[in-house]
Design a protein around this nucleic acid. Structure first.
Lengths: 331, 331
DNA sequence: AATAAAAAACGAAACGTTTCGTATTTTGGC
DNA sequence: GCCAAAATACGAAACGTTTCGTTTTTTATT
């Protein structure tokens, strides 16, 4: 495989001149032509690894999401990839299966690839990122969940959950269950908080039995929904606080021969395509994915380009309640 | 940031000794201890880029799939990632949005990162891969679709489609439509072939009006299903030949107030979780994803480890028809 | 046409590793 | 305790770039 030296030799110029040409520096016309001829003839491809070693820039950003099987996150990943590509960056996409050990491993893997920056949907790595010798110094944007002293883009989980529950209350529901997430995930807590606030604001007491903690996965949603269906004093409605669990909860419903919204009203979280085709179409809290992705890209690109140490910015986006057919009016 | 030189200095040994230690060579005990102490104290992290430059191995494989928003492919990607990790390889995952230009770009991006091997779900890049100067010499495993003279893992599309259509016929259907894929995608052709074979084998004539070509995306399925519903002589059943289009076709049905299987019988392709929770649960042709992923990993790892030029192996896996509730018996 | 200033080309050093041939130390058999 | 053989350590070169200080060439001014 030809390298820059071979090109220089064939073109009859110095290596540094070839380098300059490749990187867009000004070069005398006849040299430019000779170099280009040599590049074509030798089928020279620049060795990015060598360049990275020298420049200490990989022109690559790492993207770490909880799971590749979550359309919510892959959808964001895809949108961000577009944005980064426009800015000249490629991406390395990894997932960590909602596993803390793997989360750390993948973070280190990405760092070992010397990515220039990172977009992370953090699970338990918040402290790890803060203390890890290298991660500490690398530009990172957190999405979906907050990392202290880091640029962060999130949507307003609390008010989203509030809207969802309020909607149920307006439709006459008083016995409302929530399938929340693990208490070590920020969005889970915030959504639970929104749930509680909405109940309180409407003078409805909190029944601890109605509060279930899933693990943000499909099977978690399934399990918790099953538990809810077994309750003696069964709720008339349930708010499921993320996308995967919403799917899982629906499987549980259908497995038990329960009909939405006849037997149970439903409000889900995250408006994926799927929410429109399931039967019935689901009422959901929708996060602005396009905006979220765009902001994340902008923040990270800025951070990577300038090394002035600006303070972290936190962007919180509004959610929207999309009303479809999964809530029964029992007034 | 500490490098291997700093470690050597602090440990009082030569750089090459540190290198040997890091790479598992035998080193005198007191030196090993001193080196480890230095590594810890200086928080030394090996620079993989420098190592890659020297060894010409990145211990990374590139995975290129058509779309990150297709659960079918992300699911495979995830399974393969596990396998590669077990073998010490990290992965770079990319998608190309079913776009040939982007397919080429991403291929070149991955190559520019000097990945050691590639797993590709090829769209139109078959020739590109065959002729491109670098791709020609890099280990590549094709999945889902075949690349000549390359290791390939696919499932038997033709017989899968055959089973699907046969199932419809057994249930009394004669007017059977297919939503196939673009004619430039191999699986699309093979599945169409299976469809035709099944009809012929059962003495049913082929009605060109019943053959629709979608683009393997959700919206393509939607459009083609809408077209089918508009047909004067409407079919009683439809076989949709991939996962995304199946979803799209279902949205179209529900948008037009059509009920499965009352108004139209359905057989889909690829048994994702979703197929179980939609209502009704869908009868589908299922591909063995675990096996497919595992074989792909094995093939590529072997290929990367030995550079003997073994002939390409093609593995074809069997599909399975999973019968659920989306086909009406009209006998 | 001479000269100063600007532009371009040059060559060597550096990035952080691994590798390889050589030098040194350790081991074990006598 | 000696010596050969085995084990380990060493130092320099190399991987393919970029960068920077210096030299050469071109351009502009008079």
């Amino acid at each position: 495989m030809a390298n820059i030296k071979d090109v220089a030799k064939r073109a009859g110029v110095a290596v540094s001149t070839v380098s300059k040409y490749i990187n867009g520096g000004s070069v005398r016309k006849y040299n430019a032509e000779a170099i280009q001829e040599a590049i074509d003839a030798l089928d020279f491809k620049l060795n990015d690894i060598a360049r990275s070693l020298k420049t200490n820039k990989a022109m690559t950003v790492g993207v770490l999401i909880p799971s590749l099987e979550s359309s919510f996150f892959t959808s964001i990943a895809k949108k961000m990839e577009d944005g980064f590509l426009e800015n000249g960056y490629g991406i390395m996409l990894c997932d960590y299966r909602n596993d803390f050990e793997m989360e750390k491993e993948k973070l280190e893997f990405l760092v070992s690839k010397r990515v220039d920056g990172l977009v992370v949907v953090p699970y338990k790595s918040v402290d790890f990122i803060k203390t890890h010798s290298i991660l500490r110094d690398i530009p990172i944007v957190a999405i979906d969940r907050h990392i202290q002293e880091r640029d962060t883009v999130i949507s307003d989980s609390t008010s989203g959950a509030f809207k969802a529950v309020e909607h149920l209350i307006i439709n006459g529901h008083k016995k409302i269950s929530i399938i929340g997430g693990p208490s070590d995930i920020q969005t889970a807590n915030l959504r639970l908080e929104g749930y509680k606030k909405a109940l309180k604001a409407n003078g409805i007491g909190i029944n601890e039995e109605y509060i279930k903690y899933g693990n943000y996965t499909l099977s978690g949603g399934y399990t918790q929904m099953s538990n809810i269906l077994r309750l003696k004093d069964r709720p008339t409605a349930v708010f499921v606080s993320n996308y995967e669990m919403t799917l899982g909860a629906m499987i549980a419903m259908s497995d038990q021969g329960q009909i939405i919204p006849k037997d149970m009203s439903f409000v889900g979280f995250d408006d994926m395509d799927m929410m429109k085709i399931v039967s019935p179409p689901l009422t959901v809290v929708s996060q602005p994915l396009d905006e979220l992705s765009k902001k994340a890209v902008d923040l990270l690109v800025n951070r990577m380009r300038s090394d002035e140490n600006k303070k972290a910015t936190v962007i919180m986006l509004d959610t929207e309640l999309i009303v479809r057919d999964s809530v029964k009016n029992i007034n």
